[in-house]
Simulated assay, not measured.
Amino acid sequence: MKGKGVNTVIFILSIICLIISIKLFWNMGIFVDEHNTSPDIISGGDFWLYMDWLRLGFTAVICVLSGISLFRDNK
């Protein structure tokens, strides 16, 4: 039962991190659109823009994996 509580906390925290990351990325897109600039200028270059996308992807993968480990039937 102790492991289930830890998995639940990890799942909730990963969902919160994903929501925050998506909202920040969305706000950057709105800023870029309103000021007629590009996301790579805001991020500091193409490399950092790719790192921003990777952060979103890794956070989504962590959410999926922690959700699978939480809802999996342990015998």
Rank of each mutant, 00 (worst) to 15 (best):
M1H: 13
M1T: 11
K2H: 11
K2C: 05
K4H: 07
K4Q: 12
G5P: 03
G5T: 07
G5Q: 09
G5Y: 13
N7Y: 06
T8A: 11
I10F: 07
I10N: 02
I10D: 00
F11T: 00
F11E: 00
F11H: 01
F11R: 00
I12H: 01
S14I: 01
I15L: 15
I16E: 05
I16D: 04
C17K: 02
L18T: 03
I19N: 04
I19M: 14
S21F: 11
S21N: 14
K23I: 14
K23T: 15
L24T: 11
L24M: 14
L24V: 13
W26I: 10
W26R: 14
W26E: 14
N27S: 09
N27K: 11
N27R: 13
M28S: 11
M28D: 11
M28L: 13
M28P: 01
G29M: 06
G29W: 01
I30A: 05
F31N: 04
F31R: 01
V32G: 01
D33V: 04
E34C: 02
E34I: 02
E34K: 06
H35I: 03
H35N: 15
T37Y: 04
T37A: 04
P39K: 09
P39Q: 07
D40P: 08
D40I: 10
D40Q: 13
I41E: 07
I41W: 08
I41M: 14
I42M: 04
I42D: 00
S43A: 15
S43Y: 09
S43N: 11
G44T: 04
G45L: 09
L49W: 13
L49H: 09
Y50Q: 15
Y50I: 13
Y50G: 13
M51A: 12
M51K: 08
W53I: 15
L54K: 04
L54Y: 06
L54F: 12
R55W: 08
R55I: 10
R55Y: 08
G57S: 10
G57H: 12
F58N: 08
F58V: 09
F58T: 10
F58G: 10
T59D: 05
A60N: 06
A60L: 13
V61Q: 07
V61R: 07
C63M: 06
C63H: 02
L65G: 05
L65F: 12
S66P: 00
S66V: 01
G67W: 01
G67L: 00
L70E: 00
F71E: 00
F71S: 02
R72P: 00
R72E: 04
D73A: 15
D73E: 12
D73F: 11
N74C: 10
K75Y: 04
